[in-house]
């Protein structure tokens, strides 16, 4: 009788091979992203430009435009995938999107203010405003969530994040509805795109994204300890309070910096960790590893597709990620056994 058997966990070897394969696809995607573009550049030229730049137009295109764009996609993708995986593990809620902690709305509101009040239209200006907005929103959420003498739980932070986001949403929409010119700029930022971020954005956000990524990747064991509830975690000897604090800090840094860099990309942070979990089961170490590889793969691939399908011009990566990723996710949900989280 094959009723109610527990979800089968894949053998470690299979998971490892799967991870290597995904990594291979990511490398290919990055390669394609550097090679494919508006201007046809032969593959040999791409290689020589990567190895040593000779100052030719092709070399500048490759080294200063396409490579930074691909690397930004990788970093932002990994950041959002990991932030989502940590978020869902900490809250034990599959619907928890890292943006729920208020950072996405904080970044958005700051960008709206930058456009409408300060008249800033440069991408780098938006990035700085986004970073500051995400940081301020994080502080507000944390201050609200930490009221009282009880320990701050992720549930409380999510509710505090929802409350702060709601208030910021009001500021945001009021400005946008009263200032159509600002809305005209904001609607393109709001989709999420890697375009136009080639120069200057990567050197700024890498200082936030890289440490955040390292921190999140190392949290697997700690998150596993929380999987059966806080009491069980304590029984296993885990310092529940510290794990939460570190986890929330990681989410805020990763999601805030990623949103500041490319705009809100809801799909990647919410759905990729779910896909990872459907593939590898409940072990958070594997969920984190798969999220960190699958999310940038999806983002870079979507960026390539977005450049190819609409010419001239391009389709924003935020749109393409969902169009490519959602059907895969829905198919997985229908095919796999989905246990309660």
């Amino acid at each position: 009788m094959a009723v109610q058997s527990p979800p089968v966990e894949r053998a470690p070897a299979a998971r490892f091979i799967g991870l290597l394969a995904a990594l291979g696809v990511l490398v290919v995607a990055v390669g394609l992203s550097v090679w494919v573009g508006l201007k046809d550049i032969p593959f040999s030229t791409v290689l020589s430009a990567l190895l040593d730049g000779d100052g030719s137009t092709a070399s500048v295109t490759i080294r200063d435009v396409r490579l930074p764009r691909a690397l930004l996609g990788v970093l932002v993708g990994a950041a959002l995938g990991l932030a989502g995986a940590v978020m869902q593990a900490l809250t034990r809620n599959p619907l928890a999107d890292p943006g729920l902690l208020g950072v996405t709305m904080g970044a958005s509101t700051a960008v709206v203010l930058a456009i409408s009040v300060f008249g800033i239209s440069s991408v780098l200006g938006h990035v700085w405003f986004g970073l500051i907005g995400a940081a301020l929103a994080s502080l507000m959420v944390y201050a609200l969530g930490a009221t009282g003498r009880q320990v701050t739980t992720p549930d409380r932070l999510v509710l505090a994040g929802a409350a702060v986001s709601a208030v910021l949403f009001t500021v945001n929409s009021a400005i946008l509805l009263l200032d159509p010119a600002a809305f005209n700029q904001f609607r393109f930022w709001n989709v999420g795109s890697l375009a136009g971020r080639e120069v200057g954005v990567l050197p700024v956000v890498v200082w936030f994204l890289a440490p955040g990524i390292v921190l999140a990747v190392l949290m697997g064991r700690a998150l596993n300890a929380l999987a059966l509830g806080d009491a069980a975690g304590r029984g296993l000897g885990a310092n529940v309070g510290r794990i939460r604090l570190v986890g929330v800090a990681a989410i805020m840094v990763l999601c805030g910096a990623a949103t500041a860099a490319v705009g809100p990309l809801v799909f990647v942070g919410l759905v990729v960790p779910l896909v990872a979990r459907l593939i590898v089961g409940a072990d958070q170490r594997w969920v984190l590893a798969y999220s960190a590889v699958l999310a940038p793969t999806l983002l870079v691939a979507a960026d390539i597709v977005g450049r190819l399908v609409v010419q001239p011009g391009e389709l924003q990566v935020g749109i393409v990620t969902a169009v490519l990723g959602a059907p895969v996710f829905i198919a997985l949900c229908l095919r796999k056994r989905v246990g309660q989280w």
């Binding site: 599959p94 989709v191 919410l270 749109i319 969902a322 959602a326 059907p327 949900c333």
Partner: peptide
């Protein structure tokens, strides 16, 4: 119930992209 929610998340993501587009 849970499968319905997950499928809903996927459908919502897809439609949100359409809306942005």
């Amino acid at each position: 119930g849970f499968r319905f929610v997950l499928v809903g998340v996927g459908v919502a993501a897809l439609l949100l992209a359409v809306n942005y587009y």
